[in-house]
Structures are given as structure tokens and as C-alpha cells.
Simulated assay, not measured.
Amino acid sequence: MIHSMTGFGRARCESGGVGLEVEVRSVNHRHLDLRVRLPRVLADHEAEIKQRVKGLLSRGKVDVTVGLTPGTATTSVEIDEGVAERYVRASERLRERHGLGAGLDAAALLALPGVVRTVETEIDADRLMGPLADAVDEATRALLAMRAAEGESLSIELEGRLDRVEALAESFEARAQEVVAVARQRLRKRAEQIEREVGLLDEARLHQEIVIAADRLDITEELVRLKSHVAQFRETLRSAGIGHPVGRRLDFLLQELGREANTVGSKASDAPLAQDVVELKTELERIREQVQNVE
């Protein structure tokens, strides 16, 4: 089953009282363009995270973001008693010198700069890597699940459009025979008109012209190749899976289908056939838009 290149996954973990949140998101891209954003304390482990994600994804522009979140660890508070004492002595001197009222209370003292400071929990990056690696895998699997679900929808739509392409090919085949017959009849009428005007009819030349016209209008080979490419396209869709991306091959087959459609269009001397060729090219363009998002 094919996979889309658009997806999103999220996972959370905690270790040593430190919480981590991992988000993995991807959009379509010709190759695998992987970017990892880590907190500064984990920056040295970027290569390891990239390697884990590369093992599961083949194409797409992928962004992995890891953020620190509040965990169970408590932030400790320290009071600098030396600074507090200096504030108190200064307050007492001012009160005595200027006859001021009551001195500093505890709340006012703690609010003064430098008296209280918070001490963050020290983060052990090596200890975090095990839980973080599991969270990255979980988020990536969630992304893959979303890509698979969208890929299933893409597959259904592509199969439906391929059915229409095959139906158009069948109508080309039926109409092509009529076009050749009409060309043959037109040439014979022209020859008969010339015979009436000058009294001559070169049957050998007429036969040669009919053969040339039939060869010029014949689209049998193009239709055989077109049907073959459609069959290969279907087979490629069904062979897709994790670790087996098919987007580039589908894109190549679309190029071949477009080439055959152009050739048929160049040979289409019949208005209804030309209209069907336009519809065929429209269907191929719609398929191309969807294939751009296939891994």
C-alpha cells in the first residue's frame, strides 16, 4: 500500500523528573529532507535522533521538534541570607536616621532583588536519551500511521482515475478504426472526382495514398504502450510499503503516459477523438498532482 508524505505524530516521556515532548511532521519533497530541533542540553545527540528517523522514512520534508515540558521534578528555592541581612541593616539605619515607621517585613524582604533565587533541576542528557529515543519512535510511528491512512485514500482515488484512463484508451481504439475508414472514404471520393474531371483513375496511386493515410493515423502502438504503462502503474501501487517507496517510479510512468497521450493527440484528425485526448491529459494531470504526495 502506498504512503502519503504528509503526516504528524506526537509523543511524550519523562525521566528523572524532566518531561519531553516530541513532534514529528512531514510534507512532500523529492528526497528525504530531515531537520531536528533539540533543546541545547541535548544538542550533541542530534545525529542519533536523525539516524532513528531515517530508518523509518524514505522521502519527505520532515521536521522533528523536541521540547522540555514541566515534569515531576521540583525547582528548589535558595535564600541568600547575607544579602537579606544587609537589606535589614540598611533599613534599620534609615529608620533610625529619618525617624521612619516599622522596618521591613518578611514578604517585602523576600521581594527584594538578590534575596531569593531559584535553582533548576540539573538535567542529565545521557539519562534522557533512552526515553527520548522511545518517544521519537512512538511519534514517528504515529506519523507513519497517518501517512498510511492518507495513502490508502490516495490509492483509491488513483485507481479510479486509472479506470477512466483505460476507458478512454478503449474509446480511442474504437474511434481510431472509424477515423481510418473515414479517411479512406474521403480519398476514394477525391479520386472519383478527379476521374470525372480528367477521365483518369490511378488505382495504384490511390491504394498507396490510403496506406500512407492509414499509417499516419494509426495509434495502435501508442494504445498498446499506454495500456502497458497503466498496468505497470497499478502493479507499482500494489507493491508499495514501508521501506519500499514508489513515488519516483510512479512519476516516471506518468511521464511515459503523457508522452503516449501527446503522440495520440498529434495523430488525432477527428474532433471527438481530439476532445477525448484533452480529457486524457486532464486525467493524467490530476494523477500527477496526487503522485507528488506519494512516498
Results as ranks from 00 to 15, higher is better:
residue 234 R to Y: 02
residue 219 I to M: 06
residue 153 S to Y: 06
residue 169 A to K: 03
residue 154 L to W: 00
residue 184 R to Y: 03
residue 215 D to H: 13
residue 226 L to S: 04
residue 177 Q to H: 13
residue 216 R to D: 05
residue 248 R to K: 08
residue 192 E to R: 09
residue 180 V to I: 13
residue 237 L to A: 01
residue 169 A to C: 06
residue 159 E to A: 08
residue 189 K to F: 14
residue 155 S to L: 11
residue 154 L to A: 02
residue 218 D to E: 12
residue 202 D to T: 09
residue 224 V to L: 08
residue 223 L to E: 05
residue 214 A to Q: 03
residue 180 V to Y: 03
residue 198 V to Y: 14
residue 214 A to M: 03
residue 228 S to P: 08
residue 226 L to F: 13
residue 167 A to P: 10
residue 187 L to Y: 03
residue 190 R to Q: 09
residue 224 V to K: 07
residue 205 R to T: 10
residue 178 E to I: 10
residue 163 D to V: 04
residue 225 R to N: 06
residue 207 H to N: 10
residue 176 A to F: 00
residue 153 S to R: 15
residue 212 I to G: 04
residue 215 D to C: 10
residue 228 S to N: 10
residue 206 L to Y: 02
residue 223 L to D: 03
residue 170 E to N: 15
residue 196 R to H: 12
residue 179 V to K: 03
residue 159 E to T: 11
residue 213 A to C: 12
residue 155 S to Q: 15
residue 181 A to R: 14
residue 223 L to G: 01
residue 181 A to S: 11
residue 241 G to P: 01
residue 188 R to M: 05
residue 229 H to S: 04
residue 165 V to C: 09
residue 217 L to S: 09
residue 185 Q to N: 11
residue 245 P to K: 01
residue 237 L to E: 01
residue 208 Q to N: 10
residue 220 T to V: 15
residue 203 E to G: 07
residue 224 V to C: 11
residue 196 R to A: 07
residue 192 E to T: 14
residue 183 A to C: 08
residue 242 I to N: 07
residue 240 A to S: 06
residue 213 A to F: 14
residue 208 Q to Y: 11
residue 168 L to G: 00
residue 175 R to E: 10
residue 244 H to K: 09
residue 182 V to R: 15
residue 230 V to K: 02
residue 228 S to C: 14
residue 173 E to A: 12
residue 199 G to M: 03
residue 156 I to P: 11
residue 192 E to P: 09
residue 216 R to G: 13
residue 211 V to Q: 06
residue 213 A to T: 04
residue 217 L to C: 11
residue 211 V to E: 05
residue 182 V to L: 09
residue 221 E to Q: 14
residue 231 A to D: 14
residue 216 R to T: 15
residue 196 R to Q: 14
residue 166 E to P: 09
residue 158 L to N: 02
residue 165 V to D: 03
